[in-house]
């Protein structure tokens, strides 16, 4: 399912070409991935279920309540075009909620939780391997576009252990001529998000929007499972996509023509692919650990061309594959045409 987040086993640095996996927690894989991507400083706040990231330390990471506090900084980084990577391991909310997995911060993360005309690319890993690989991708994206980038995982993906093959460290990212490096070459540089003149700020905002458009054109990632001939398309990301994979497999064995689309980037959202699928399918269902937040992006992507149902669990409950299978069966039956 993660075929496009490759394992990059090159052996170019004299490391053994054949890498061996280690069994590691998702949160720890983020830390190691960040170091392989060149991160040498870390500023975070321990909030369960993201605490391992703060403990292991060396970007920034937190969970829902902490990300709310970071919104001010994310907006300023977007305005001043400072690259950074922020990981959120989503937990139950609102308020203090609980520490069990939810995806209820989709709106906060994807539709942005701070002020101003900005977006942040968002990667949604679903496995230990992706916790590493997408963290590394996040660093490259942040650097290339000079933007904050978010990694949105859930408590399960953070706490789960899976085998991970760690790729080569990425070569040092280019030196920044715009930074304040405290040297003669950069002495007159200014990092600021202030543009007092309306025309100047409008132009700055237009520049940001062009950047987001380019990101939407170039950085979309998604994966699919049993999508060929699917008349019913289920959409889920992160841990939910793993449960759905099992459910889709079981449903196909019963003869239900169902397939899975899993967004890997939540912004940019795989709009074009969904639009294509809406021509082939008769119905879609989004499965989320929330009250239904991603569903709005799905409906917008396909312009409500076909009905989109929603199935969600909240409070930290993760649906079982059997539970999702029931929803798929019902939709297949009620849809009549499947």
């Amino acid at each position: 399912m993660a075929q496009d987040a490759g394992t990059n086993v090159k052996g170019a640095l004299g490391l053994p070409a054949k890498r061996t996996p280690i069994l590691i927690k998702g949160n720890d894989a983020i830390v190691k991935g960040a170091i392989l991507a060149g991160a040498r400083s870390y500023f975070g706040y321990p909030i369960t279920p993201a605490s391992e990231i703060a403990e292991t330390a060396s970007r920034t990471a937190s969970s829902g309540p902490g990300i709310s506090l970071k919104q001010e900084g994310i907006s300023y980084c977007a305005g001043a075009e400072l690259p950074c990577v922020i990981a959120t391991i989503m937990r139950g909310g609102p308020g203090l909620g609980n520490i069990a997995p939810e995806q209820s911060d989709y709106n906060q993360v994807v539709r942005i939780g701070g002020h101003g005309n900005y977006r942040t690319p968002v990667y949604a890993p679903a496995s230990g391997q992706e916790m590493c690989d997408l963290t590394m991708a996040a660093f490259e994206t942040a650097d290339r576009y000079r933007t904050p980038v978010m990694i949105a995982a859930d408590g399960f993906t953070g706490q789960m252990m899976e085998p991970v093959v760690f790729p080569d460290p990425i070569p040092a990212l280019p030196e920044k001529d715009w930074a304040t490096r405290a040297d003669a070459a950069t002495r007159r540089n200014l990092i600021s998000s202030i543009f007092l003149e309306p025309d100047e700020l409008e132009e700055h905002n237009r520049h940001l929007q062009r950047k987001y458009k380019e990101i939407e054109e170039k950085e979309v990632r998604f994966s699919e499972y049993m999508i060929d001939g699917a008349k019913l398309v289920v959409v889920g990301y992160g841990i939910v996509s793993r449960v759905l994979r099992t459910a889709v497999h079981l449903a196909r064995e019963e003869g239900i023509p169902v397939g899975l689309l899993r967004p890997i980037t939540l912004f940019p959202f795989p709009k074009k692919r969904l639009e294509e699928l809406a021509r082939q399918a008769k119905r879609m269902i989004t499965f989320e650990l929330s009250n239904g937040q991603m569903i709005e992006d799905v409906r917008l992507s396909i312009h409500d061309r076909i009905p989109v149902d929603f199935y969600g669990r909240m409070g930290g409950n993760v649906p079982s594959a059997e539970e999702c299978l029931d929803v798929i069966r019902r939709a297949a039956k009620e849809g009549g045409t499947l």
Binding site: I99, F156, Q159, M161
Partner: peptide, 9 residues
Amino acid sequence: VSWLPSYGP
């Protein structure tokens, strides 16, 4: 393989 600790509720 996958390993998931009991967690949350």
